[in-house]
Design a protein around this nucleic acid. Structure first.
Lengths: 216, 216
DNA sequence: CGCGTGCTTGAAGGGGCTCAACTCCCGTGG
DNA sequence: CCACGGGAGTTGAGCCCCTTCAAGCACGCG
């Protein structure tokens, strides 16, 4: 997935390090606390240090679409315009680093490898969004849930046991479903012996191979 | 939408001009001709000169998800890895410009404003993808069709009369619907007097205000 | 212990899908 | 000029998956 290692180039995980002399510029947040809101000025770019974050948009009539879940190491808040297009909230106790857009621009102007890192990260976000589109456009409810579980497992570097950081409503709004359908999908996966649900936010992937086959 | 004009910066429409001394490096394509395929090496970045292009992915069982429609001026083929993640095809007689990824990298390394232009374009693609997600996740069939019509109108700079460059199957696979549902949505919009369909690929937006209200 | 919030389960309804027939173009050739 | 054929689009009927509405359950917290 990652490009071959190049000497002296930024590891994308540490893009901010070069621009942030004091790595203590952290924001600490509690459950459901807003980081920024849709329409607000996009002055900063963020990186999750610990915890997890959701971004979403809301339609006039209240329908909500969760755009992305962000975990430790993930960057968010790349907005090309002046305003944020989504709202970002912590899903649990979370800390994030911030950097002024201007500071990042300067870094990019000074160092070509930083530009490459930024491009890489944006492209990664684009890929995620494209996968999300495929999921919503052409997959059944169960396939969507399986896709999300595998995605969480991969991105939190868990293998068989995963801690689901979000509630059913967040899952539903990410997958374009209702909480009831998500719940039914999970129990049906459990009935088929593909997963186990020791607690409501803890999932055991009992047959990962079979689950992966379901989403190609 | 666009950032304020900066002296000496690239107009994103003309990003390639600086990197392409001979602007004749064009590829001419006919209907349904493939530009690149999923999994192939991503050596080039492309820009539509005239005509229109679709990008898509196909699932094992044949389900297809159209990722994007590209019109004159649009760039495509931004892949961060070595391989294309989608297939790109011309939807009609089309010509595209190409530039080696390496040449673009060089340009970006040499000129900071090119980096900004590239970032801008990638971010634009990301925004489109996010809007697509919202469409697929939380909108009804009719709302999706209206959204597509308005998007085409805007991006082809048409006001009331639009030429739909794609067939019903392409629309359906972009919107996560079936051709029958797309067709029914169009006739129901016609019945309500919101649009007219003089021919199958020609749509008149009779009440644009009302249509825009439908998608917020 | 009781209450509340979030999750699960059930029953009924609906929006979009499936399958199938039909229509409309449009190009081709007699 | 019309007959023919074929692909694309439309329309119809029935079904199914997901939603809606409603009730029941479980866990956590005062």
């Amino acid at each position: 997935m990652l490009s071959p290692i190049r000497a002296k180039s930024f590891d994308t995980d540490h893009l901010f390090d070069a621009a942030l002399p004091t790595p203590g510029a952290c924001l600490r947040l509690t459950r459901d606390e807003e980081i920024f809101g849709e329409g607000e000025d996009a002055d900063y770019i963020y990186q999750v240090v610990s915890g997890s974050v959701r971004t979403y948009r809301i339609l006039r009539d209240g329908r909500r679409q969760v755009d992305a879940f962000l975990f430790a190491g993930d960057y968010f808040g790349w907005e090309m315009g002046e305003a944020h297009r989504v709202t970002a909230e912590a899903m649990c106790d979370t800390s994030v680093r911030m950097i002024r857009r201007g500071a990042l621009s300067d870094l990019v102007a000074r160092r070509g490898d930083a530009a490459r890192a930024v491009f890489h990260l944006t492209a990664e976000g684009l890929q995620r969004s494209q996968d999300h589109v495929l999921m919503l456009g052409r997959r059944s409810a169960i396939e969507r849930v399986v896709g999300l579980l595998l995605d969480i497992a991969q991105r939190t570097r868990a293998d068989a046991e995963i801690d689901v950081p979000m509630g059913r409503q967040d899952m539903a709004d990410y997958l374009g479903l209702t909480i009831e359908t998500v719940s039914r999908a999970l129990t049906s996966l459990q009935d088929e012996g593909l997963i186990a649900l020791p607690t409501v936010r803890h999932v055991v992937l009992k047959d990962r191979r079979a689950l992966e086959r379901m989403v190609l």
